[in-house]
Simulated assay, not measured.
Amino acid sequence: MNNQHISGIIKQFQQYKSTGDKTMTQLSFEDINYQPNEDSNSISIIVKHLVGNMLSRSTNFLTEDGEKEWRQRDQEFEASYRTKEELLANWEKGWNCLFDAISPLKEEDLNKIIYIRKESFTVSDALIKQLAHYAYHIGQMAYVGKMLKGDQWISLSIPKRKNL
């Protein structure tokens, strides 16, 4: 059986990772830590949250609940990265964990049942849930980056008024 669905899912995750990568490449560490107010998340905090989610959901993906006891979700919303390099290394660690978990999957795995917070999901539904969650937050990252860079922003897609 081919892995057309799995490879499509992996490609989508790779595209969102690339969007995050291209966003952070354009920003200074100061930009990455920008918060308009204390109730808003900086890009740094969003990255920390995404990494926490990736590590929790992807570790022992098929055999353990995706919400690990060791995850400290509330702490993900506290700024703690000291350098951009530390943030980017953690970003890569999260994505590597995700890709290591889903790359070996086979089509027949998509209908298996896994758990997240003791709620059952098919593997397919859990991956869609994760993909949507990451797209949501990476879109926030790109929006903040674009806002901060203004006319210095390098578009991540087709720029306005540049229809081909």
Results as ranks from 00 to 15, higher is better:
Q4V: 15
I6A: 02
G8L: 07
I9D: 02
I9A: 00
I9P: 00
K11Y: 02
Q12F: 00
Q14K: 04
Y16S: 07
Y16M: 07
S18L: 14
S18K: 14
S18W: 10
T19R: 13
T23K: 05
T25F: 14
Q26P: 10
F29E: 08
F29V: 11
D31F: 09
I32M: 06
N33W: 12
Y34N: 11
Q35W: 08
Q35H: 13
P36G: 12
N37V: 10
N37E: 13
D39S: 14
D39G: 14
S40F: 12
S40K: 14
S42R: 11
I43G: 07
S44K: 11
I45S: 11
V47T: 05
V47H: 05
K48M: 12
K48S: 14
L50Y: 05
V51N: 09
L55K: 09
L55N: 06
T59L: 06
N60W: 00
F61N: 01
E64H: 04
D65G: 02
G66Q: 01
G66L: 01
E67F: 15
E67S: 15
K68E: 00
K68P: 00
E69N: 11
E69V: 12
E69I: 08
E69R: 07
W70G: 01
W70I: 03
R71K: 01
Q72M: 12
R73Q: 04
D74Q: 13
Q75I: 06
Q75D: 10
Q75C: 08
F77N: 05
E78M: 10
Y81V: 06
R82D: 12
K84H: 06
L88I: 12
W91H: 04
K93Y: 05
W95T: 07
C97H: 07
L98M: 03
D100K: 12
P104M: 02
P104N: 00
L105N: 01
E108Q: 07
E108V: 05
K112I: 03
I113S: 08
I113F: 06
Y115P: 01
K118Y: 07
E119Y: 14
F121Y: 09
S124F: 09
D125K: 03
A126Y: 09
L127Y: 00
I128S: 03
K129S: 13
K129V: 09
Q130N: 14
Q130V: 09
L131H: 02
A132F: 10
H137V: 05
G139S: 04
G139H: 02
G139L: 04
A142G: 06
Y143V: 09
G145W: 05
K146M: 05
K146D: 04
G150R: 09
G150E: 12
G150D: 12
D151P: 13
D151G: 13
Q152T: 13
W153G: 06
I154C: 07
S155Y: 07
L156E: 02
S157V: 08
S157M: 08
I158G: 06
I158H: 10
I158Q: 13
P159M: 07
K160H: 15
K160V: 13
R161Q: 15
K162P: 09
K162A: 14
